[in-house]
């Protein structure tokens, strides 16, 4: 891999539940000061905590560049609403939204909804793949230039540039089009933790960012190659997929922060991953050491950028804005 290949750095900002906006705003701003690509905020119906997508919407106007990636579960939610909410996060953040797709496998979560029994992870990840698929279709269901405001014909939109998605999945169907116009990034960034087999099968098909877990750089590199190969087998360009290694961190001193910079440098030089997704133990403490200790060292070594060259999360990640699948179809016919 070439030495000019950028290093991507991101971090989880969840932890013990907080319900005040200021807590999350200050963490996201801290991460933004460290020019991280994005923060994730994990979420589940199974433990106390606020709705993560709501929290990051609240954070959006209080930040300027940092990518915002809430966990969004697909098991007990409506695909149509999920797609609209993620698109809206992209609108309110002006192109900085992503979503970390996850499923709800427990009986306890099923009982909160009382709508369907708990199901095995494989089945639910199959459904999550369908949700990712239909979400992208709904984002594309408006072409970028669908709004025309043509006073001569009295038309606000060109309805030929709106598309039914007519999606039929195993457990749901969606007619479309979306109620939300195509979001600024075209598709907000899809993040999938590709650790389990079923999740990895979803990641190779739908993820823009796949998170992987490995104990050492060699293993990570092998997983990255596997994911890229499988993505290619699904007709995807593997260079449009970022593989980030999840790195749990626990930093008590400046020396720990220096050590982390060294470790990240090693993983980078080994070509283990496109970057690292940091999982703090104590988020306020650890993220502080990362931003004030680790990041400046990586910048000094020329491994990490010093500012955000772009405005959107896709730009931070070096991922192109996706072409609209329906606009393409239209050109072919």
């Amino acid at each position: 891999m070439s030495a000019t290949r950028p290093l991507h750095l991101s971090a989880e900002i969840g932890g013990p539940a907080h319900y005040d906006a200021a807590h999350y705003v200050s963490l996201a701003r801290l991460a933004e000061r460290g020019t991280l690509d994005f923060v994730t905020l994990s979420d589940t119906f199974a433990r106390p905590g606020p709705d993560a997508l709501a929290v990051l919407s609240r954070v959006a106007p209080a930040t300027e560049r940092i990518g915002l990636v809430p966990t969004v579960t697909t098991t007990h939610t409506e695909p149509f609403h999920v797609s609209a909410a993620v698109a809206t996060l992209d609108w309110v953040s002006r192109g900085r939204a992503g979503w970390a797709v996850d499923v709800s496998t427990t009986e306890a979560e099923a009982l909160l909804f009382g709508r369907r029994p708990a199901a095995p992870g494989d089945e639910l990840w199959h459904e999550a793949r369908e949700v990712a698929d239909v979400a992208a279709k709904l984002w594309d269901s408006w072409e970028d230039d669908a709004e025309i405001r043509d006073t001569s014909t009295g038309r606000f939109i060109d309805r030929d540039k709106l598309h039914y998605v007519d999606f039929e999945g195993r457990t749901f169907s969606v007619r479309g089009p979306s109620i939300v116009p195509r979001p600024p990034q075209g598709h907000p960034v899809t993040v999938i933790d590709a650790t389990s087999g079923a999740a990895r099968a979803a990641a190779v098909r739908h993820a823009d960012v796949a998170l992987v877990r490995a104990d050492d750089p060699t293993t990570a590199r092998a997983v990255r190659e596997e994911i890229r190969d499988r993505a290619r087998a699904h007709g995807r360009d593997p260079d449009r997929l970022r593989v980030l290694a999840v790195l749990p961190v626990e930093l008590h001193t400046t020396a720990d922060a220096v050590g982390l910079a060294g470790l990240i440098g090693e993983w980078y030089e080994e070509g283990a991953a496109d970057g690292l997704h940091l999982l703090p133990t104590d988020v306020e403490r650890d993220l502080g050491f990362v931003v004030d200790g680790t990041v400046p060292l990586l910048q000094h070594r020329g491994l990490l950028r010093r500012f955000y060259p772009g405005a959107t999360l896709r730009e931070h990640l070096g991922l192109a804005r996706p072409v609209n699948q329906y606009a393409l179809a239209g050109e072919g016919s």
């Binding site: 709501a54 609209a84 698109a87 809206t88 609108w91 309110v92 953040s93 939109i157 939300v180 116009p181």
Partner: peptide, 13 residues
């Protein structure tokens, strides 16, 4: 006019 964002998400912002 056609198209609007999802309400709760906008209100959080």
């Amino acid at each position: 006019v056609v198209g609007r964002p999802e309400s709760i998400t906008v209100l959080n912002a």
